[in-house]
Design a protein around this nucleic acid. Structure first.
Lengths: 114, 114
DNA sequence: TTTATATATAACCATTAAGTTATAAAACTT
DNA sequence: AAGTTTTATAACTTAATGGTTATATATAAA
């Protein structure tokens, strides 16, 4: 995943309305009107949010008569999660090294390591 | 983690400079000048990025003479990852249901399920 | 054929974001 | 005491976000 793709994905996730839309889509595809119902904002505002999600590859659109059903796409979520997990692992690594250093310092208090 | 905290965290992650800063911090704390070195943007721009990261709780600041060393903090990464993993699980669940439905339909082709 | 429904687009406004340069403040160095 | 280094802040510009209302487009329904 390119840096720009990561930008778009994390940007899309950084809004509570969009996260709520994704959560709703986890239980199946939905029309724009269905997605808009729980919110107080206008239909065009929802369409804009959907465009952000689509640009990030987090959702895709279908066609069913006048409806343009929205469904969640997995790939990008997986890739964003991969970035985070990778970072987490890197952090744990550095904290392990810090732990090792602290152990060394404590050991040094009682006498030099051979 | 509150929705606003998730907003701040994903917003902070949605910029390539800030992700690069975090990646650098995974190998240990660093001063502002050290963090700025690899980039072409000005020092105040880096300070602004650090403020975004700090507001999100992804880094914290120390004091070492004139330096204000920056270090990565784990908690918020973990919580953001949790949200993503949870969403991933929810998606997998719905796709499993879809798989089950497709299996049912195929089974129905050959005869009704008892 | 007219009307209703679902969605998208345009034009606009207010706020926030990312960058800049210039300057201030704090602590070290000489 | 004077100068240097490190960081933060202020003021500004430009562009992007998130929302609005009004309108256009596509399809279904009467």
């Amino acid at each position: 995943m390119s840096p720009a793709d990561l930008d778009a994905t994390f940007t899309a996730l950084a809004d509570p309305t969009r996260r709520a839309i994704l959560a709703r889509l986890a239980s199946g595809e939905a029309s724009v009107m269905e997605l808009a119902a729980p919110f107080q904002i206008s239909q065009p505002a929802i369409s804009k949010h959907l465009k952000v999600l689509e640009r990030a590859g987090l959702v895709s659109r279908g066609r069913d008569a006048q409806r343009r059903p929205v469904r969640a796409e997995q790939a990008r979520v997986n890739e964003a999660t991969k970035w985070l997990e990778n970072y987490r692992r890197a952090l744990e690594g550095s904290f392990q090294r810090l732990d090792a250093l602290l152990e060394d310092l404590q050991a040094a208090d009682k006498g030099p390591t051979p």
